[in-house]
């Protein structure tokens, strides 16, 4: 543990612990939730809007479902939304940036103008429009956010490639007669991918926030599946008298997003140290 703390700092380690906790909750939700069937959506109308008690630690919602169980099941949706958005974005952005940066010329111009178009729109607005057009559902909302997200990675990858392309070891490879594809994959990609992966870790928090926003607006996953954004929206009608309905999922969003951001920050500091050492 002390080795980890030295690498990430105590803040980073704490955040990693928070993330791992949420991941375990998501993974083992059916066994960890006190009322798994309610967590999955079965109403329990005899116990509507009960305040926190020994039976229901975080109270119940407007359909009498245990909020704690719903938050635990909601972790599945939020976790996977955050990670998948970033993964999809990397999958598109990294290759586009690599190709644009390495080959330059008209390919670069064309690809970068496309990213400009995406970057010219406010990201959330574009995501809302896309999600509305695609219709509700988890995968649709993830795709909607990823489409607004990848241009950032493309830009970043391109900037990294432009730096690496001029490095003497890349030049040495091309003087040796190594093919362009191999130079790109073997000599440039490993260097360019690192800072992008750090940025991706930093972005999981904002990504799950955006996904939750879409759910809050009714553009995310459909009921009765538990989703933190949706739960905050449902609890809004009873706020502030029955605050627990919104508060628990809201705090969960806050904690997880914060944990990803601080962890990403710690990773970035480490990467920065490495770069300084290398210089």
């Amino acid at each position: 543990m002390s080795a980890l703390a030295r690498r990430l700092g105590y803040g980073g380690t704490l955040c990693l612990a928070v993330i791992v906790t949420f991941a375990l909750l998501a993974l083992f939700a059916p066994w960890l939730a006190p009322y798994p069937d309610q967590g999955m959506g079965t109403p329990n109308v005899i116990a509507k809007l009960k305040p926190p008690s020994a039976d229901f630690w975080l109270g119940t919602d407007h359909l009498g479902r245990d909020v704690l169980s719903r938050v635990i099941f909601g972790a599945r949706v939020s976790m996977s939304a955050g990670l998948l958005i970033v993964a999809f974005s990397l999958l598109i952005g990294l290759p586009v940036g690599l190709l644009a940066g390495y080959f330059g010329g008209w390919a670069d111009e064309a690809l970068m103008r496309v990213t400009d178009v995406f970057l010219a729109f406010p990201a959330l607005l574009l995501a809302v429009l896309l999600a509305a057009a695609l219709g509700p559902g988890l995968l649709n909302s993830i795709v909607a956010v990823a489409v607004t997200w990848w241009p950032w990675y493309a830009r970043m990858a391109r900037a990294e490639v432009l730096v690496l392309r001029g490095q003497p070891y890349v030049e040495a490879a091309s003087v040796m007669g190594v093919s362009q594809g191999r130079i790109l994959i073997r000599h440039i990609l490993p260097g360019a991918a690192r800072p992008l992966l750090v940025q991706a870790a930093l972005d999981v928090g904002p990504a799950l926030l955006t996904a939750s926003s879409l759910s809050f607006l009714g553009l995310g996953i459909l009921p009765p599946t538990a989703d933190w954004g949706k739960m905050v929206d449902e609890g809004r009608k009873f706020f502030p008298d029955r605050w627990w309905v919104s508060a628990a999922p809201g705090i969960a969003i806050f904690l997880l997003a914060l944990a990803f951001s601080v962890l990403g920050d710690a990773l970035r500091d480490r990467e920065g140290d490495k770069r300084r050492d290398a210089a």
Binding site: P168, Y169, E171, A172, A173, V175, G177, H187, G191, A278
Partner: peptide
């Protein structure tokens, strides 16, 4: 690319010219 094989090249700073 094939013709390049007949020239060997050594750069100034080995730490920069060897893939890290």
């Amino acid at each position: 690319r094939r013709a390049r094989h007949s020239i060997g090249f050594v750069a100034q700073n080995p730490f920069l010219s060897l893939s890290p």
